[in-house]
Design a protein around this nucleic acid. Structure first.
Lengths: 326, 326
DNA sequence: CTGAAAGCGCTTACAG
DNA sequence: CTGAAAGCGCTTACAG
């Protein structure tokens, strides 16, 4: 490996001059050219460790992702990576496997690696999170969830749920099952539910029941089966597209037809929702765009530019065949 | 931030002693305890940059992933991460967005970061890849593709395709369309095709035609439509589950029913293939296990243990409803 | 514009 | 078992 000393020697100048060339650039045209030439020739690239050790800061942004095999998260990651790369920053991904304990370990590990900031693709913000984050010394941005004390970027869960609810009601559904997540997950467990509730409250004679499943789909099956048998909804509103997929499977396995006998909707706009048959009506969020946005916001945070505590990314209702007009 | 000097001062010993405690450990019990105590108290963690700068090597394994939002790749990543973490290594992910040019840039960037080795989730190994990899100085492992000059871990594409073919024939299909990928992608474009071909060659009176699509699904739609109109297959064998999903959509959009009018199979065993209706018959690969394996193989490569050039991960045919018995 | 020197936080022979 | 010193590859005041 060639180092800055090698370059300096070959160019006949001091290391500091090469360093200056690499950084600010208060170097005469002649030496500039010499150095440039040598660098090209040798294919020299500065040792990132030495730079970071000296500079005590890096151009690395740490990202914590709870699940790598999730459409929403991976699309967000792509967006972050894209934007960061364009601005000469680097993304370091760490995976918590939906384990909050591990998530906190990951925060520490990223700090040890001297990342300039941390983007947390969040599911739940506990008090421990808050305490740790507040004394970290580097900016943390949460994506997908909000918190009054931490900068955040969220999807417009509430409005999306409201608009989707309005649409469902406009199609004449009056007996509705809502399949949500635990309220620990504020964005999905509360905001989507509340937005939906509001649309219901504006309409008379609606029979709605709320249910709850876990993130993983294993248990969705039996719950859906029970809901259908006991409540006989005309539509099941699912708080995520993944839940909707699991629900559809449960519905089919009972020999019930979608949307003739039972309608269904999701949230997310995952790619697969348009591949399946019937296509799933859903509230689409723009994960990749949100990732771009998050990256830019993080850079503002690092630079100390003022940026709003909370940024809201948009949505779009996608109307497909899974909802029947009653 | 507390450094090794702080710890040394507080413990009343030299930096080198602390360092020794942290590494080999030829330190007396008494000092050991003192240092341990101080470290606990201060929450000291060594600066990874300084360590790496000195050691000229890291415990970081770079991974290049062509698509972050792909089931196969992300599951593999999870497997790699899991195993690496268990062995006190770290995974650094870099995303090439299915762009071979970018992939090569990523290799260079990982080298600059002094990773100990690179795991490349491969789609296509070009000559440029080969040249660069051979003069890298650190081990490179390719996953999903093979090459006689580079250590690799592959799925058993050939046998899986053969066995799936046998099954399809056993169900009485005689007019078969195979929807593959370009031969640049050896594992998918060639091995799966050839394995399948072999099963056909062992049987008389089979009418088979081979077609090709791109990785992204946009164009699948019209090709499938044409195949159906012109060739009238009783089954479409798709070289990946993603292609199968796209194909199913195209089939439905023509008002054709699966599997009554037309059967279909995939490759991969993606989670969604069991969520959809009808469930997709497919050759399942164990991506996460393969990731575990890849991590272990990489560590062997780094240590210089001898490890076979080529490791083959298993498969399992999953029989579901998308194939009709003729 | 340029160079010499100190220092970032660690590790590793080398003495003792 | 332990300490002093040199050095990893860079950057940054400080002189000139």
């Amino acid at each position: 490996m060639t180092t800055i000393s090698d370059i300096a020697k070959l160019a006949g100048v001091a290391k500091s001059t090469v360093s200056r060339y690499l950084n600010e650039g208060s170097v005469s045209e002649a030496t500039k050219r010499k150095i440039q030439h040598i660098i090209k020739e040798t294919g020299y690239t500065p040792n990132a460790f030495a730079q970071s050790l000296k500079a005590k800061k890096t151009n690395i942004i740490g990202t914590i992702v709870p699940q790598l095999d999730s459409y929403a998260f991976s699309r967000t990651l792509i967006g972050i990576d894209e934007e960061l790369k364009a601005r000469n920053y680097q993304m370091l991904i760490s995976h918590s496997n939906l384990d909050l304990e591990r998530e906190i370990e990951n925060i520490h590990s990223l700090v040890r690696q001297k990342v300039a900031g941390i983007i947390l693709l969040a599911t739940e913000i506990t008090n421990r999170h808050l305490m740790i984050i507040k004394q970290l010394g580097i900016p943390v941005l949460i994506v997908g969830q909000q918190h009054e004390e931490i900068p955040s970027l969220i999807h417009n869960d509430y409005d999306a749920a409201y608009e989707l609810g309005k649409y469902i009601l406009s199609q004449g559904h009056q007996r509705i099952a809502f399949l949500g997540l635990h309220e620990k997950n504020v964005a999905i467990g509360i905001d989507r539910k509340e937005g939906f509730k509001k649309s219901i409250e504006e309409t008379a004679n609606i029979d709605v029941q709320f249910f709850e499943v876990k993130m993983d789909q294993a248990q969705t099956f039996s719950i859906v089966s029970e809901i259908i048998d006991r409540f006989h909804p005309s539509i099941i509103v699912c708080a995520t597209d993944n839940i909707a997929m699991g629900t559809m499977k449960a519905i089919y396995s009972k020999g019930i037809s979608i949307p003739c006998d039972l309608s269904i909707t999701g949230f997310g706009g995952y790619e697969m929702t348009e591949m399946i048959h019937p296509g799933l009506t859903t509230a689409k969020f723009f994960y990749k765009d949100a990732g771009n946005l998050a990256a830019r916001k993080m850079l503002s945070l690092i630079k100390g530019d003022d940026t709003p505590m909370k940024t809201v990314s948009g949505y779009e209702i996608i109307y497909r065949e899974s909802v029947r007009k009653m």
